[in-house]
Design a protein around this nucleic acid. Structure first.
Lengths: 319, 319
DNA sequence: CTGTTAGCGCCTTCAC
DNA sequence: GTGAAGGCGCTAACAG
């Protein structure tokens, strides 16, 4: 094959102008059925594929989607959830000729936000770890090419997921259930907590919640707190597998049997939750689908509905 | 602020032509010290930032780097190592205005290879899971914008890493050490195996190797094989943490104590290796650095030397 | 060393 | 519905 065919050749072959060919191939603007067929046919025969970079320059859109993750620590970019979501977005936008880039945002990220608003290489932004203040200060130029995970964007139905695990604990006889929550500064931490308090009150059970932060270390510390304040606790639910592993470690060190004495549940079903010992009961989430949905919504290819994706309990050994 | 300044304005302000301004700002082509200063000054005052997309279109280079991972299974794109490397590449090439995309390659990937060679949106390719046949059939147009992980590109010094762990096992009194290897179809599986056999022969110890494939399930199966064929084994080394977790599971199920009866070592130090119970002794690797090095080499920003990055033993509980 | 002049490949007003 | 022409913003030959 010679060098790649260009739009000019497709147009010539189809017997129309480049303008018409462009309209047909890009699907924007009017075109008669006849010329549409002619152009499509010519493009197919020639194996024409539009040059993604030229197209994006002309259109003024960027070439990459930015996955911005707001967190206290920069090493959030090594977090399994983040890397998995970033990779999924890359796979989901591959066909559009787009790439993905990732960036850590500090809790106060106003400066970074409008730096990204003026970066012409950025087609769209997906933001995780948002809060209200940050969304309020959103540069207007990001309007229409922006999507959050949660807070109006696609997300895990964490309330339903946590509820399902709590119900399982209740059904299996647990009556003094503690919860290690997510970090208080994270808006997404609220839903699971509310689900928990609501369900406990419905069951007539005591509320025993301790603040966590998604880390294993905090899981250990939180467990010590739980055991000290409420020694008769018979189940510890968490909202992250890392936390749950910390809980397991602390319980093991204290000689407490799992699940006999205390049941434990995680959240997210990270790659090694199944391989932990004992195997972690948790909830699994379609991270790839959520990431893809967020990317598509940010690109305006899909309605940015606040769709909640199901969280499925995975019952293994710990509960 | 008005709309973004363009090269024309910078040139006018500096009192030179756009060509000169372009040369200075892009660092390609000659320029006198005087005009260099003038252009730089003008650019700084105006807050000029070149449009990445326009630049890449004019230059004919793409806008994204492709991370292609060759493996039997498509879900290799969920592998912790892959997602971590992909994310690291994204972070490393962010400043260049590039994005990252990921793609799974089947074992026989010749077709995909030249599909990516003709994709004008791709600036460079980083390939993992290569073998000789595939590299031999490399499209020539990829020359100069291609880098492998291993096989001529940056990689973990897995021979040294495995050796260090084996030496540790030997020093701590283990004398019947088995190895669960990587998948035979993967070129990178050879170095650790050779390090193992070499060291065993040096120590005058028996060679006991079983084929693995980086999965937990295979780790369990391999352990059964080891226990059946060589019941007096006192250490099982692996070349992947997932495999090691499988080994731990099988040993626990068999009532064998770790590390008292059998010591176990992993490889890679995945996020939860430290949180496993018992905590996994393994080797840690600078995945982010390796990924960044590969990306830069593929882009021609760094010499594509076959640099080996150190593998550091992390002694925890299992050995 | 510098300026002029075409591109890079496609999109998109604007008249017809 | 269609075509002509002028961008999108920068780079790279080519003279000078």
């Amino acid at each position: 094959m010679t060098s790649r065919p260009q739009l000019t050749e497709v147009a010539r072959r189809a017997g129309v102008s480049v303008a018409t060919a462009s309209r047909v191939l890009s699907g924007r603007g009017p075109a008669s059925g006849a010329s549409r067929d002619a152009v499509r046919g010519a493009a197919a025969e020639l194996g024409y594929v539009a040059h993604p970079v030229a197209r994006r320059l002309a259109r003024g859109t960027g070439t990459r989607i930015l996955f911005a993750v707001r967190d206290r620590r920069p090493d959030i970019l090594r977090d399994p959830f983040v890397t998995r979501a970033a990779t999924a977005m890359a796979a989901a936008t591959d066909a559009d000729g787009l790439g993905v880039t990732v960036r850590h945002l500090p809790l106060d990220a106003s400066a970074e936000l409008d730096r990204m608003a003026t970066d012409r290489s950025i087609a769209a932004v997906v933001l995780a770890g948002h809060d209200r203040a940050l969304l309020a200060g959103l540069p207007s130029s990001l309007r229409g090419r922006f999507c959050t995970i949660g807070a109006g964007g696609p997300d895990v139905d964490s309330a339903a997921g946590v509820s399902a695990l709590l119900r399982h604990l209740h059904v299996t006889g647990r009556r003094r259930i503690a919860l290690v929550t997510g970090p208080p500064w994270l808006a997404a931490s609220r839903a699971p907590l509310e689900a928990y308090t609501g369900l406990m009150s419905e069951y007539g059970l005591p509320v025993r919640s301790v603040a966590g932060d998604f880390t294993t270390a905090r899981g250990r510390a939180a467990t010590r707190t739980v055991l000290r304040r409420w020694p008769d606790t018979d189940a510890i639910a968490t909202v992250s597998d890392a936390t749950a592993l910390g809980v397991l470690q602390c319980l093991a060190a204290a000689g407490i049997r799992v699940p006999d004495d205390i049941a434990v549940t995680g959240f997210d079903d990270v790659p090694f939750a199944a391989d932990a010992h004992p195997a972690l009961t948790t909830a699994t989430h379609p991270v790839e689908e959520i990431a893809a949905a967020a990317a598509h919504a940010a690109l305006g290819k899909a309605p940015a509905a606040a769709r909640l994706f199901p969280s499925h309990p995975v019952l293994r050994t710990t509960a």
